[in-house]
C-alpha cells in the first residue's frame, strides 16, 4: 500500500466497497437535451479525489445504482457528474434537486493516460455525451499546459442544440493554446460550423503521428471508426486510448457483468489502448 494516508472516503470504500457514501447536490445544470450536470459535496466534508477518466457508482436511494464518469475538474471544485437520463436510475439521478442526498461509491477504474501524454501532442476526440468523461482530462491538459505539446479537441455531436457544455466549448475555441473543431451530424441553415461525422475532422487533422497521443470517448461504433481513422493518420495502436462502456454492478471486478474478453471494464479500464481492444471489438457480441 502507498505511504500516503488514505482519505476517510477511500478508507470507508476499502472497508465496505459495496456501501455508498453520502453526498448532497450543490447545483444542477441542464447541459444537453437529455443530460444534466450535478455538482456534489461529500457529506463528510472531504474533497473527492480522482483521476481524469475514472468513474463513480451513483445511487438514487430507493431506485438503484449506475456507473457515471466524473466530468469535473480533478484539481478543484466539487465532485461533478454529467448524467444522461436513459434508464430508471439515470432518470432518477438526473431529477435530483439542490440539497438532495445521493450515494457515491468510487472512484473506480483506470483513467486517461495523462502521464504518458506528457511531452506529446494530444488529440482528444469526443462524440456526443462522450465529452463528459474527457472533460477532466481537458481541464488537466489546460491547467498543466506546459507539460504537453499541441492540444486538439475534435468534437462530434448530433445536432447543434445537442452540443454538451456548449458555453465552455465556445470558450475553449477562443483560446490560443487549444485547437477546437466541432462538427454535427445534422444541421439546419443557422449552423455556421462543420457538418459531417467526427472521423471527417480526423482526416483534416495536421499532426505528427509519431509524437501524438489520442483520447477517444463516444458511442462504441464511433470509437471503432475514429480509431481506424487515427491509424490511417499514422498513429500507433498503443497511443490511441478509448473509454469503454459495459453493464456494471459492483465496479470492483467482483460481479462479472462488465467483462469483455479477459478484461473487466470496471477494473482494468474503462480506458484501454486500441491495441488491447482491437481484437475484442472485432468479435460481435463478445
Amino acid at each position: 500500500m502507498p505511504d500516503v494516508p488514505m482519505s476517510e472516503t477511500a478508507a470507508l470504500l476499502h472497508a465496505r466497497p459495496m456501501v455508498p457514501q453520502i453526498a448532497h447536490v450543490r447545483r444542477r445544470r441542464h447541459d444537453a437535451p437529455d443530460a444534466w450536470t450535478l455538482e456534489l459535496d461529500m457529506a463528510n466534508g472531504e474533497r473527492f479525489l480522482y483521476a481524469p477518466g475514472q468513474f463513480n457508482m451513483l445511487t438514487a436511494f430507493g431506485v438503484g445504482e449506475a456507473a457515471i464518469s466524473v466530468s469535473g475538474d480533478p484539481a478543484e471544485g466539487p465532485l461533478i457528474h454529467t448524467i444522461r437520463a436513459v434508464g430508471p436510475v439515470s432518470k432518477a439521478l438526473s431529477q435530483l434537486g439542490v440539497g438532495d442526498p445521493i450515494g457515491v461509491r468510487g472512484p473506480f477504474g483506470v483513467g486517461w493516460p495523462m502521464a504518458q501524454a506528457e511531452g506529446k501532442d494530444v488529440v482528444v476526440v469526443a462524440g456526443g455525451l462522450g465529452l463528459a468523461p474527457l472533460r477532466p482530462a481537458l481541464y488537466r491538459l489546460l491547467r498543466e499546459r506546459a507539460r504537453y505539446g499541441r492540444v486538439t479537441l475534435l468534437f462530434g455531436a448530433r445536432r447543434p442544440e445537442d452540443i454538451l457544455f456548449r458555453q465552455e466549448v465556445e470558450r475553449w475555441r477562443g483560446r490560443l493554446d487549444i485547437d477546437v473543431e466541432v462538427t454535427v451530424d445534422h444541421a439546419t441553415d443557422e449552423w455556421r460550423g462543420h457538418v459531417g461525422v467526427v472521423t471527417n475532422l480526423i482526416s483534416r487533422l495536421d499532426t505528427d503521428p509519431s509524437k501524438t497521443v489520442a483520447m477517444v470517448c463516444g458511442p462504441e461504433v464511433m470509437m471503432r471508426f475514429v480509431a481506424m481513422a487515427l491509424i490511417d493518420k499514422g498513429l500507433g495502436e498503443e497511443t490511441i486510448h478509448l473509454s469503454m462502456e459495459r453493464n456494471m454492478k459492483c465496479a470492483i471486478g467482483h460481479c462479472g457483468h462488465c467483462q469483455l474478453g479477459a478484461t473487466f471494464i470496471c477494473r482494468d479500464g474503462p480506458v484501454f489502448t486500441y491495441a488491447r481492444l482491437k481484437p475484442l471489438l472485432a468479435v460481435k457480441e463478445l
Binding site: 459495496m18 431506485v63 462479472g256 457483468h257
Partner: peptide
C-alpha cells in the same frame, strides 16, 4: 457473478440494496 437489487418502502423513507447470484445466461446481465 452477482447482481444487485434496490428495494424501498412506499413512503420513500427506507431503502435497501441486496446482492444475489446472477448468471451470464440472462439478457439483463
Amino acid at each position: 457473478c452477482t447482481t444487485v437489487e434496490d428495494h424501498n418502502d412506499l413512503a420513500g423513507v427506507e431503502s435497501s440494496r441486496t446482492r444475489r447470484w446472477d448468471s451470464c445466461f440472462t439478457m439483463d446481465y
